[in-house]
Design a protein around this nucleic acid. Sequence first.
DNA 1: CCCGCATCTTGCCATTGACAAGATCGCACG
DNA 2: CGTGCGATCTTGTCAATGGCAAGATGCGGG
Lengths: 202, 202
Amino acid sequence: MPNRDAYHHGDLRRTLLAAARDLIAERGVGAVSLRELARRAGVSHAAPAHHFTDKAGLFTALAVEGYGLLGDTLAAASADAGAPPAPVGGLALLRELGVRYVRFALAHPAHFDVMFRPELCRETTELAAARERTERLLRAAVPGGPTGPRAEVYSLAAWSAAHGFATLWRDGSLSPDRDGADPEELFLAAADTLFAPAPAGP
Amino acid sequence: MPNRDAYHHGDLRRTLLAAARDLIAERGVGAVSLRELARRAGVSHAAPAHHFTDKAGLFTALAVEGYGLLGDTLAAASADAGAPPAPVGGLALLRELGVRYVRFALAHPAHFDVMFRPELCRETTELAAARERTERLLRAAVPGGPTGPRAEVYSLAAWSAAHGFATLWRDGSLSPDRDGADPEELFLAAADTLFAPAPAGP
DNA sequence: CCCGCATCTTGCCATTGACAAGATCGCACG
DNA sequence: CGTGCGATCTTGTCAATGGCAAGATGCGGG
């Protein structure tokens, strides 16, 4: 009934994705229902199905969008660092990617939530491709390059640290006492501890 | 109707928790419904509510159980390492706790799944206490002790790495190419890379 | 001009979570 | 011994949801 003319051509899909993003950010992924999204978009309860097939389809689309955004920011940092010849081989780029990873998770909580929940998504080739792009970018930032002997382990270590921090912060597991602190600074402090030599005592 | 005599005294709560654990491990947390659990336990559809109040109550109970199990294995390692006077101050204990953290996540996927999903649980004092125990154990394992200047950052770094690895492995984000590898060994390799001096190139 | 297709709607059904009211059992207490 | 109370479980019910089917609507190409 409402806004009959506004839709029926074009941006319902985008509208629904935006509504899902907001709803997840507000009340968590569990509060998402196709009908509620339809209500917010002013369409009938079955309209979303024609764009996403399924609830899983909607989450999958959100996840793909999320991997796209994350990939973009990681690629931008890699491009910046790749231009000057100097710092390649060091940890500067990997560090920067870690910060951006964390920043992304906090700035786009809804996307991040959905990206790492395989039970919510359908494993499409599109999703796999988007995910692989992220992995490639991480592996390419490793000291020694993506083909170096330690590339695997190094990128895995960095990814784990960034992902773990982002996840723990996101779900409130470590905020009680660290509330008010700036998560990015906190992550950098932790990351620098990680990749620094073991302390022999000051 | 079925098994009228077996229940009605005692272990329905335990039975339901076990059923939930199995169901989550089999089909994911999304497949859990109180009614399905009731069906598996052979009781009526409303019986679970009397033990957990709520679906959130069930997940909360599972999470508390999970934190208990995790805390036990971390505490055991800490006790072992605390007895001999020597290795305190080194990274050996923290490393061991990391492995045990990862091992727990892989051995008890259902518990682990629920423990870090605040939107599924109710924040009871019991849950908070169980979680804080874990945090205390991690912080106590840091080189320099839980009151040292770097305790915060160090435990946070280690926790992030272990949690991130466990999470990524668990949801299949890094299995495609690393399938078949032993996750514990992989984690140790990554962890040792993390806390080792930065490579100057061999 | 008309047909086809994408888009959206209406109607429907099984499942679920939650609640209310009643049944059944054990146990303490008189 | 029996009686009443509370814990445990059942039956009945309701609104909300996901998903399917069938129909309406409107745009663009033949």
